[in-house]
Simulated assay, not measured.
Amino acid sequence: MNKHRLHSLSLQDLSVFIAVTELGSVGNAAKAHGISQPSASYALDKMRRVYDDELLIRSGGITRLTPLGQSIVDKGKPVLADFLEVRPALQFDPTTSTRNFTVIGFSSHLLGPYKRLIDALKQRAPNITFSYHYARWDSINDQLMDEADLYLGIALPEHPETQSKPLAAYSVVLCYDAESRPPPRTVEDVVNAEYVQLRSGSPHSNNIVDAWLIKNGYSPREFRYTVSDSAVLSEIVRGTDILISASTLVHEDIFSDLAAVPFPADLGDLPYELRWSRHRDKDPALLWLIDLVTELADD
């Protein structure tokens, strides 16, 4: 057994493993837990890696437990039963809680309806504190597993150890200084223009624009400037013929002093979401926060 990785297992991993032995398949275990089959498979694979044992062996249409697998089931069932007895006692009162929430994302995404989150927390949960950190684009899911409660921003690919909730979708617009240039009207105008982008590689509307251009046989755009602070973008564009591509969510807040036109083709909308670790999906405080942000997004 890999003792150094034992801490990475969760009660859900154990519960999924036991459910597979009782229900006969990964698919049935996934349905019982309300998760996807890849997520259940991931939990089973993680158990096998940590214990360095197959745990379950299927042969001739019959699934049997290894000795170690049987031992885990025998000792794990009472543990799960104990925690199920405790769960109903878990309570969260936002009016008295002193919980600190850690949210990650990108500064330009904590806008629109979500910027009202601070005011809502003050009104409904006066003793709760709120920390916001810049997400590391290449390890957002790892951050959610280790240090953050919630990711708020553009939708990410599915991950077996995190789950998400869609909030809204926004169209893509092209922002510019109307006193310095005419509006881009055609795709050719878009391709021939120069751009400034926010932190190359971060998940903003550039991705959806460039993917569409490449798919439809156009040349990639030229990004002349790259900045790490969204507050600088408007200042760089003002007085120039440079464009910014952004979602309508971002335009309505940080780029409201610039003119904007829709992208001259149907790109589809840019979805935004909440994302959190599956290991925290029974945390009543986190569920309360998720409901609060969803409510603000729906207003």
Rank of each mutant, 00 (worst) to 15 (best):
I242W: 13
F106T: 00
E158N: 05
G60D: 03
W137F: 04
Y42M: 12
S219C: 00
E252H: 10
L174A: 12
T186H: 07
S107K: 11
W212G: 11
T226Q: 07
S234C: 05
L156E: 04
F101T: 08
G34W: 02
V293C: 14
A81P: 08
P166V: 03
A19S: 14
K122D: 10
M1V: 10
N192L: 13
W137D: 02
A148Y: 06
Q91Y: 01
A211C: 14
P203W: 01
I140W: 03
H33I: 02
G239P: 01
M145H: 13
S25V: 07
L144E: 04
T63C: 04
A168G: 06
G61R: 03
A32L: 01
T102E: 14
S247M: 05
E273I: 01
A259Q: 09
A168N: 04
W288T: 12
I18P: 13
D138T: 07
R238F: 01
I242N: 06
S39E: 14
G217W: 06
L150P: 01
R199F: 03
A169Q: 02
R278D: 02
S234A: 10
H133L: 15
P78H: 11
F101H: 09
R280Y: 02
H109E: 05
G61C: 05
L9Q: 06
F223I: 04
Y51K: 10
T129L: 03
V86C: 06
S245H: 12
G34T: 10
G105S: 15
H4S: 11
S247I: 03
N28S: 12
L111A: 15
K215W: 00
S202A: 07
G153T: 05
L144P: 08
D93W: 05
S234W: 02
P113K: 14
P94H: 01
H33K: 07
D82R: 11
H279A: 15
L167K: 01
I214L: 14
A168L: 03
S245M: 12
R280K: 12
D299V: 01
P220H: 04
S245N: 15
R136F: 05
G34L: 04
R238C: 01
F263C: 01
A30Y: 00
T226K: 08
P67L: 10
P182I: 06
K77M: 08
G153P: 06
D298T: 04
S59K: 02
A285G: 04
N2D: 11
I72S: 07
S71C: 15
Y51R: 13
N141D: 15
A32V: 00
R64V: 10
R278V: 00
K31M: 07
A32G: 08
A260V: 13
V20A: 02
A29F: 05
A125G: 13
V20H: 04
